[in-house]
Design a protein around this nucleic acid. Sequence first.
DNA 1: GCGAGCGCGAAATATTATTGCGCATCCGGA
DNA 2: TCCGGATGCGCAATAATATTTCGCGCTCGC
Lengths: 166, 166
Amino acid sequence: MGANRLDEIDRKILAELQDDGRMTNVELARRVGISAPPCLRRVRTLEEAGYIRGYHADVNPRELGFEVQVFAMVGLHSQAEVDLSAFEQRCRDWPFVRECHMLNGEIDFILKCVAPDLSSFQTFLTEELTSAPNVASVKTSLVIRCAKDKPGVPFDVLEERLGRSA
Amino acid sequence: MGANRLDEIDRKILAELQDDGRMTNVELARRVGISAPPCLRRVRTLEEAGYIRGYHADVNPRELGFEVQVFAMVGLHSQAEVDLSAFEQRCRDWPFVRECHMLNGEIDFILKCVAPDLSSFQTFLTEELTSAPNVASVKTSLVIRCAKDKPGVPFDVLEERLGRSA
DNA sequence: GCGAGCGCGAAATATTATTGCGCATCCGGA
DNA sequence: TCCGGATGCGCAATAATATTTCGCGCTCGC
């Protein structure tokens, strides 16, 4: 469900705004082939319906002095819901942790972290993360380089699938 | 380097646009405490200097029919630069792969993937990823739920650090 | 202390966002 | 077949915003 309620213009709007979220409505309307007022109405509707959760500038961490990016794989002692939630809340409170995903399998959580330098990350790792309640194991991997970092979803795949089923 | 060249207003601009990338320049100027023209000039400068790499709508994958998110940990046979680059290029070509990070340690790459359903991901996994040249091992973990997903960097940490050093 | 460079803000103008409204189209029922 | 009702478009008008221009004050190096 969800994507079926959207027509081709809506999907094009989402694709364009995912690619350039600060595009003017006039330009957006031109690209999707309708006039500005209905285009803006569609955008508002998509926002209110939750298809668009927000807009964010993509800032460059290195330029801003965040030299270190790390993935941390975390295992917990207890997987009771109370304990899972407690750990998630800690992650929300830690500024270096940018993403926290609960996983299946042997790893319980994967965290994407960012830090100004290795030493400040080490301090966070030993004094905060590893020593947090219920944390059983933490494996970390430094990001050497990033080959791809696309936001959201591949709209071209969506079009293909809808095209076949339509 | 980098963040030092920015004054407090620049950093506030980046923080605000990271939080809401579609804010009008008038509103942004009001929040950072200067008038609209210099505010817009600063934004343009930040964009051109690479502090801002772009703007993106944050779309909701589930609403759009992408029910499955997966982290894939990939090991390669050869870590020669040619082979690393070749694998990275494949990742760029696979639409289901949204992020591809090269890591240190036993894992060579971590991929963040999105797919419409489990079966289409399985097809991708077996027919594309696992069977790609030079791929030695692939471990996948399904995302059960996402507790935190913040973009970019924690500007409050940046302010603290600069505050102490200034 | 004195010009040069820098960055601000006021004002004017160009563009864009937003609202109001009439029209065409597409059903579902008489 | 014909008739509302609902949906969604586009035009036109207005409000808001973006962008340019320009003069002023500030700081800094000499």
